[in-house]
Design a protein around this nucleic acid. Structure first.
Length: 416
RNA sequence: GUGGGUGUAGCUCAAUUGGUUAGAGUACCGGACUGUGGCUCCGGAUGUUGCGGGUUCGAUCCCCGUCACUCACCCCA
């Protein structure tokens, strides 16, 4: 029988990598604490409707990338493709409107999208997500962008580019949309197939189409900045002023649009110069319409999601530090097979005292056991009939090649 | 969903125009060193050549299909 393999687009994060993940999440937690965000644990699956209404019926994510199934009670369920909609659902469901606004939440966990895997893109992937819910002020947008930059600064990342734009609001975006459509109409036949396709549904996406034909056509397209309403314009100016004040280096990319329907006003993205074509390590923005889309009152909010895989990949490419890789303090070596019961007991006593310890269970030679000690521990603790007779343990420091004889009590107080 | 590249030992890779028993390095285990890792030397174990079919006297090699990995399109974290 063939051994069953992990499904396509999923992967096992094994010991040699998982400590790096633990390091990255610990930094996420630190920054979240410093910025006053509270951690939440949300369900990995939700009602399909939450995403189809929240993220948008016509988005790629909902249209062709969701893992959807019917549960045994006949409900349509989806594995979450992103966390923002769940965050808003939780805010509404738990009546967080009665708390101090904005409510600042963060979370980390797996997301699921049915896509063709490639570098930095998986069907199950990990995201860190932060949301500031319930405030309109552009300085909250500023805080959120600053949060992402601070996170990357602490992780030691470099060669990043921050892109920022405004995508308007329901008041002004339709005007721009109309203006853009009028501009594109004469060139409609020349556009690429997918842009032709979205001409009616989502013409803004033509702006960030990478095909040369479309790029050429849109080179002189009207900018959304000309169409923003006063409110959106002021919001954007205030944000840019703030970014300037904190010395943030950002690029105003007038072509930046977002694929998710709920974005309003601020949209931003951070790109890594050390990834392949899947180079966004962070994407976010303001979503003042999400709450209403899923049946709530008007709740202006802003947040972002960062991809953990892409962060780790970038850190590896840039040789960033992940802190110290954890290893055992002690490997207990049996000099003779007959003392294995004693090595077991020593391992147990060390562990009881909070000293990480391990030993051989394969009846291997002493030489082999010493090898393991050298590979996976700082100290080898050798026990044989001589040690038992004298009531001591031979303790060898593997990196310095020095050794001494200690009683168990001395050993514990030395290593604790 | 579309296209390119790649699948041989745990890992990195060989194998002549298609040729008989598929090799090496590394890691692993044992020994030289009858109780001490790293260096050296000796020995040992390990494969459904991704899977299925086809061509052939004969396929790791050629052809078709399939699966997986990978990169790109698309989309996005």
């Amino acid at each position: 029988m063939e051994v069953i393999k992990a499904p396509r687009g999923t992967r096992d994060i094994l010991g040699s990598e998982s400590w790096k993940w633990a390091y990255v999440s610990s930094i996420c937690r630190e920054v979240a604490d410093d910025f006053g965000y509270k951690e939440v644990h949300l369900p990995i699956f939700e009602h399909t409707e939450l995403f189809s209404r929240g993220v948008g019926e016509t988005t790629d994510i909902v249209e062709k990338e969701m893992y959807t199934f019917e549960d045994r009670g006949g409900r349509s369920i989806a594995l979450r493709p992103e966390m923002t909609a769940s965050m808003m659902r939780s805010y509404l469901e738990n009546e967080m409107r009665s708390a101090n606004q904005p409510v600042k939440l963060w979370g980390i966990g797996p997301m699921f999208r049915y896509e063709r895997p490639q570098k930095g893109r998986y069907r199950q992937f990990q995201q860190m997500d932060i949301e500031a819910i319930g405030a309109q002020d552009a300085f909250v947008d500023l805080e959120v962008i600053n949060f992402s930059m601070e996170l990357y600064r602490r992780l030691g990342l470099s060669n990043l580019q921050v892109l920022i734009n405004s995508v308007g609001c329901p008041k002004c975006r339709p005007n721009y949309r109309k203006k853009l459509q009028d501009f594109l109409k004469p060139e409609h036949d020349k556009l690429c197939d997918s842009c032709k396709n979205r001409f009616d549904r989502n013409p803004l996406r033509t702006l960030d189409c990478k095909r040369p034909v479309c790029k050429e056509i849109t080179a002189n397209a009207p900018s959304i900045m000309e169409c923003l309403c006063d409110e959106c314009k002021e919001h954007f100016d205030k944000l840019m002023l703030g970014l300037n004040r904190i010395g943030a280096v950002v690029k105003h990319d007038k072509r930046l649009v977002r694929g998710l329907d709920y974005y309003t006003k601020t949209a931003f993205e951070i790109l890594s110069g050390d990834l392949g074509s899947q180079n966004a390590v962070c994407g976010g923005g303001r979503y003042d319409n999400l709450s209403e889309a899923i049946g709530g009152p008007h709740v202006p909010s802003v947040g972002f999601a960062a991809g953990i895989e892409r962060i780790v990949l970038t850190m590896e490419a840039q040789g960033c530090s992940f802190g110290k890789e954890p290893s055992n303090k002690v490997y207990v070596v049996a000099a003779e097979p007959c003392v294995r019961i004693d090595t077991m007991d020593l391992v147990r006593k060390l562990r009881m005292n909070g000293i990480s310890a391990d030993m051989d269970y394969m009846d291997r030679s002493m030489k082999s056991q010493m090898k393991s000690a050298g590979n996976m521990a700082q100290y080898a603790c050798i026990i044989g009939s001589e040690e038992l007779a004298k009531g001591i343990i031979t303790v060898k420091n593997m990196s310095e090649s020095t050794q001494e004889e200690l009683t168990i009590e001395q050993l514990i107080s030395k290593l604790k």
